[in-house]
Design a protein around this nucleic acid. Sequence first.
DNA 1: CTGCGTGCAAAAACTTTGCAACAAT
DNA 2: ATTGTTGCAAAGTTTTTGCACGCAG
Lengths: 150, 150
Amino acid sequence: MTDRAEREAIIQRFMDERGLKSTRQRHLILETFFDLDGHFSVEQLWAKVRAHNPRVSVATVYRTMKLLAESGLAHAQNFGDGQTRYEPAIGREHHDHLICTRCGAIIEFENDRIEQLQDAVAKKHGFKVSSHKMELYGLCRSCQKAGAGA
Amino acid sequence: MTDRAEREAIIQRFMDERGLKSTRQRHLILETFFDLDGHFSVEQLWAKVRAHNPRVSVATVYRTMKLLAESGLAHAQNFGDGQTRYEPAIGREHHDHLICTRCGAIIEFENDRIEQLQDAVAKKHGFKVSSHKMELYGLCRSCQKAGAGA
DNA sequence: CTGCGTGCAAAAACTTTGCAACAAT
DNA sequence: ATTGTTGCAAAGTTTTTGCACGCAG
């Protein structure tokens, strides 16, 4: 998605703006995270990080992702299972999710018209919106077929 | 919202359909829950239930709310703090939420046009949607003012 | 050097579950 | 009687935190 140089710049800015030290662990976690495409729990991310450096603790991953999310470079999602999932929020358009309640498949979509209407609604209520989430739950195409048979 | 008789009928149907026994505790929890207006954590609901009957355990509240949500009579929400919140889902139109990230205020709204567009998006992806969530995060009117000063 | 960051393990927060007593049908 | 339900406490999950050591600036 994002090219390496741009990503580096973003990571650097993130560190600078918050006065964070640039450590081996943070870089590894961020690189790993931004290489991913999709929605990952800390546990999953940790597994990938450990493949590179088994000594990184899960606490560091939690701490780093929390900082990232606060800075807006990652979005925290909550799809109903008890875990927080993060997804990269740079170099991509905002998007929303269709979630299959049977197989867990997650499909992303975006719709400008909806975004416009959201802004209008917010304005009507005097809100200044900084982010939003929209999730549609249901059955994906193949689960509708499978579900009928099962 | 719902009048007492209708509510009783709904609760009764809920019990019948799932073959649940009609216990003192379940009734108390359900009555208490449906009297509420808003989004409540199990902890909060439990506190209100205990006011009536201090012997009800929190486990029963968890179990009951889980059943209710599965039956579609309550909606489970996740607003980012680590707790599940439930809100009554009978006698009301579907609605979505504006959430103030500063003071935590929750404003409800509904917008048919958005719902229509959601359906259209789902259809395009072959999805059969059964429910959805939409949350807009930002600053409410008073926090925008307060925020500027702080 | 100085202080932030890390790893580890303990703790916290929330939710689920095993089991024996209990109540609804 | 029979079977589902409850309360309690223990255990499970996910996430946070205290503390001593270590590394970046």
